[in-house]
Design a protein around this nucleic acid. Structure first.
Lengths: 252, 252
DNA sequence: GCGTGTATATCGCCG
DNA sequence: CGGCGATGTACACGC
């Protein structure tokens, strides 16, 4: 296929808000936040009508080069070469794809209004703990605030009060907690101590914790509570079940 | 196209280590670290021979669902439906794509041995500073260690010694530094002070710094040095130029 | 494989 | 739009 003809097809497709998929031999250059150059090779190129451009090599899950949503995409022929450029102003960056040979050119109008549902995020885990601290933390705690702003230090996932009346800062991690999570919790506990006074406890709630993080946690007088994310989701489903939440299949 | 026929083509293509691109109406389910469900809609599906699977909606730069390199991909027909599953053991997770209608099916053998070159990463910036601290930090510093392991606290980008003989911890950010970078630097300086004693300085080297981070930095007695990433890259090119580095075009 | 940190991270939320 | 934290983050490197 002639480069000029391809350029016309692609421009028209994008104008109709269609998606373009190209399998082609190309080179790629990027200049912006950093700078990169990729020599000639065969790749899959996706251009979406929202300005997203992706260049995929035959291996790896991440695109080797890309330009996110909102880029201005233009297509032109330079002799036998098809040149696709995607530019965005802030941050100022430019992606240039030079296509020598097109193996496949697919234009498609995609209709996709389906909702994407995700369970098991950190937000869900946090809310589940707030609703049922006894089940998930093994202790009767009274929620004071979710995403409590702690001055310039940051946000505590949960601020609660224990049965003795002490403030308890809870830092939730959806996956294994590392040293960073401990430092984060330490900062928050320190802030609450200075701001509200009295004894302040810190709980790190996560499915697991690295050895180093646990050692550091103990040294700092902070506590770890093992959380099962599945249990948390179930706890939520259980609650919602009574007020009309969707029934979840519990299959293996 | 019949689902069974498509399944055969795809399986054969993957066996030949080809890449498969499908534009299709499908539903997607994921179960693993979290759990997700995506109703019926039109998407672009990429299956690479290394086990990478990507599902792209018509908008957005990230795949709505995916499975990274190393997944076991299997394809089968269930009546009129083509079912693609990608499973990996650790972490245990499974992606299931159910294809109702195939608009395009592309199989391609991609040859791509080109090198990907990237300039302006944080590693490059760090090494450039280590090689030329006077030019980039405006001060005569002697490098002691790159990526210096600081016990359980983490790694300092650079550990150096100033002309007065004080240790200097340098934290490098290739973009604007936020409060987190300051806390990180504070931790490192504290550790070096305890471990090696004496006065220990901390320098945050970045193109810019947020207002909050600067306030915190000053309060902690730490220092900020503005770094121009382009200058750092140039410093490197300059050095390499003499020993045979590639000539870079300086076009606008 | 675990632990740690970067990324042209991207994305969403909130002031 | 800046600032900040989460992500099914993925990925590379060191131990």
């Amino acid at each position: 296929m002639q480069a000029a003809e391809a350029a016309g097809m692609i421009a028209a497709a994008l104008a109709r808000r269609n998606v373009v998929v190209i399998v082609a031999t190309c080179t790629v250059e990027y200049d912006g936040r950093a700078r990169s150059r990729l020599g000639e090779g065969d790749r899959v190129i996706i251009v979406k009508s929202d300005g997203t451009v992706l260049v995929h090599r035959p291996y790896g899950s991440l695109p080797v080069n890309y330009q996110p949503e909102g880029s201005a995409v233009s297509v032109r022929a330079e002799g036998d070469t098809l040149v696709i450029t995607a530019v965005r102003p802030r941050p100022s960056e430019r992606l240039t794809i030079r296509v020598r040979r097109i193996a496949h050119l697919v234009v498609a109008e995609l209709r996709d209004d389906a909702e994407f549902e995700l369970w098991g995020s950190e937000d869900e885990l946090r809310d589940a703990i707030a609703r049922n601290p006894e089940l998930l933390l093994g202790e009767r705690l009274k929620p004071v605030e979710v995403e409590a702003k702690l001055g310039r230090v940051g946000f505590a996932d949960l601020l609660m009060v224990d049965e003795a009346g002490n403030y308890v800062v809870v830092e939730v991690k959806r996956e294994e907690a590392g040293v960073d999570a401990v430092f984060q919790l330490k900062r928050y506990v320190g802030y609450v101590q200075r701001a509200l006074g009295g004894r302040v406890r810190g709980i790190l709630a996560a499915p697991s914790i690295t050895r180093r993080a646990l050692a550091l946690l103990s040294k700092e007088g902070l506590e770890f509570r093992r959380i099962d994310p599945k249990a948390a989701v179930k706890a939520k489903s259980g609650l919602l079940g009574f007020i009309g939440g969707d029934e979840e299949q519990s299959g293996a």
